[in-house]
Structure formats: C-alpha cells, structure tokens
Amino acid sequence: MSELKTDPVLNTQHQTAPERAVAELLVNALQLEVAADSIDPEMRLFGEGLGLDSIDALELALAITRAYGFELRSDDQRNHQIFASLRSLTGHIEAYRTR
C-alpha cells in the first residue's frame, strides 16, 4: 500500500483499501449521490470537489467515531489538513483509530 501512495501516477487515481473504506463511510453517512470508488483520493472534500459543508462535518465526525472509535476535536490545529481530502482524512483515521 505504501508503494501505491508514493507512485505519482497512481496517486490521484486509485484508492487504497483504507481509503476505499473511508469513501464508503462518507457516501453512506452523508447519503452522497456518488459512487464510493469514484472519489479521487486527492480531491477536496469541502467547498469545491465533493462540496461538503459544516453540517456534513458534524455528521461525518459521528460516523467516524462510530466506525473507528475515536473522537474528532476542533481544537486540533490540523483539522483543515485532516479534512482536506479522502487521503488526508484516511491517514488521520489510520493513525488514531481504536478499532
């Protein structure tokens, strides 16, 4: 998987297995009308790209807590980075998940 992430060609086109799982969670929790496997891991989640908003952020935080067992906090200065893309969000989840 780590080879996949460092491959500049594959980087923006293919989801790793954990990314795919988070993409499924995004689509299910927010009832998005896109296919989970069509979400570009580098695409912006908020604003442009997937076009999520602050209500989605709250909903997403609940889904993440339920699925991965840890709480998101907004005093984390890296929140902007964490929520930047499917890839960054997955990285954060993989680092902090308790299940």
């Binding site: 952020a57 709480e71 998101l72 907004s74």
Partner: peptide
C-alpha cells in the same frame, strides 16, 4: 471562548 463544535469539544 474555546472550540465547541464536535460533541467531544462541547463536553470538554
């Protein structure tokens, strides 16, 4: 005057 957005924030 601190963060209070996510449930964890509000509780803290």
């Amino acid at each position: 005057c601190g963060p209070a957005f996510y449930p964890g924030d509000v509780n803290a």
